[in-house]
Design a protein around this nucleic acid. Structure first.
Lengths: 250, 250
DNA sequence: CAATCGTGATGACGCAGGTTAATTTACAGA
DNA sequence: TCTGTAAATTAACCTGCGTCATCACGATTG
């Protein structure tokens, strides 16, 4: 069940079993990728997309001096570059952050799905729009939060996303990122990220280590980053049985 | 022809005449909206989306102190909240910036299109992904550009988008925004926006007035903001005849 | 015609975060 | 055990932008 985590707990878009089966059947290959490896370059003509099964991946834009700005971090269950199906060419690079396992889905299979299964198509569309909603939350983070708030917001967001993927218990999770990754995520320097992490440690809100993130006070951390998880469209309470879940429509 | 500007000049997604006709037929109403009016609130359950015909609209997130961060600015031809069709509930507010004319499209019509016309569906999907690509460019702007660069990038982006809509000649365009709008767009204070605009004026790159934006040196302005229009997927060279344009596929 | 308000312009001052550089720690490999 | 390297930490200094305040101008409105 490679698609197990895809759209899990997402409000209003439960995958029916036949839809899930169709997605599974669309996978052409499972690959293991080494850490810190560029997978897609901006401008490449793409004919397949990547569903992330294990590990962490990123999407980023480099400036003319080589300074990097991450525009997305992906966790297991994310359809990393599904947007390449309609777009065909991307405006940014895609890379692994840690070692990763991915499922490859050819665009020809997705094309067939758009003809056969409009409901599944709309769920795929939905999943690309979650990424856009996360982009917007990041814009808010950049525009209106100070350094501590930005890091607090990112850690809170990642915590919820990993809870949904079953990879965080709400207080502790593994994240293979180093401090300079956080810098490229939050639009800060690694020196300042270090200062921020010390402050979060001293205020007993959160301890960040490359191997393990521990959130001591989830509610306070979220408040510090003005984090409201609504934009993730995650409903952790929802039972897994389709009958008890509100449906998108018809 | 209300949909005249929708997806105009977008690389690889030319609307066939029957597709355009179907979209036109989906419009339930044309509305005129006053300036500075909130149209959609975060959390509302939505059953229609808005195609912007004339004027400017914005999408934004307010912080807990009421400070506003714009996450998108929309120009004529944009399907402002098409993403509300798959999402149903938005994570942000939508408002007019200037007086605006919009076409209303009920989600029931879009639902029908996803069943009947997979190719058009994918073009609609594509258009929501352009918005996401613009989000990413904004993330880059926030993370890696200084104040002057951010404003230069925004003005360059807006210029290209308006050229595509036929509302800029590449050097001059009307934009009903005031300086504090720019502040909320660029994540700066209006005081500092004022300083930045003075600098752009003194460097003879660009003159910004609420009524009219004049770009004196488009290339230099773009360079100052590290602006590369690739992410807009606009091809102004492309002829309007479908035969001469590269097609998405089949 | 006065009063008010929205917008723009500008100056003084302070601080969050950038820059540079040096030091320490943690590991992997020989 | 020693060594080389990536990552983390910390200090000293500087600057871009925020904050606060004032003033000017034009458009409304009473």
């Amino acid at each position: 069940m490679f698609t197990e985590r895809f759209l899990r707990h997402r409000r209003g878009v439960h995958l029916e079993s036949e839809e899930r089966a169709r997605l599974e059947a669309s996978i052409s290959e499972i690959k293991t990728l080494p850490p810190r490896t560029n997978i897609v370059m901006a401008g490449d003509e793409l004919s397949q997309s990547i569903l992330l099964l294990e590990g962490f991946m990123s999407r980023y834009i480099d400036d003319r001096n080589g300074l990097r700005q991450l525009v997305a971090v992906h966790v297991p269950g994310d359809f990393v570059d599904l947007h390449a199906f309609p777009l065909k060419v991307l405006d940014h690079d895609v890379a692994t952050m840690t070692a990763a396992t991915v499922a490859i889905v050819p665009h020809s299979e997705l094309e067939a799905i758009t003809h056969d299964l409009p409901a599944l198509t709309r769920k795929l569309w939905f999943s690309t729009l979650i990424d856009a909603a996360i982009h917007r939350a990041w814009l808010f983070r950049f525009g209106r939060l100070d350094a501590v708030g930005r890091v607090a917001h990112f850690i809170s967001e990642t915590n919820v996303r990993l809870m949904s993927a079953g990879l965080s218990d709400g207080r502790r999770f593994a994240l293979g990122l180093i401090q300079s990754d956080l810098a490229e995520i939050c639009g800060l320097t690694n020196v300042h990220i270090n200062r921020v992490l010390r402050q979060l440690r001293e205020e007993r809100l959160c301890v960040f280590r490359s191997s393990l993130v521990e959130i001591l006070e989830p509610a306070k951390l979220a408040a510090r980053g003005q984090f409201d998880p609504a934009y993730l469209y995650i409903d952790l309470q929802s039972a897994e049985s389709p009958s008890s879940r509100p449906r998108l429509n018809s």
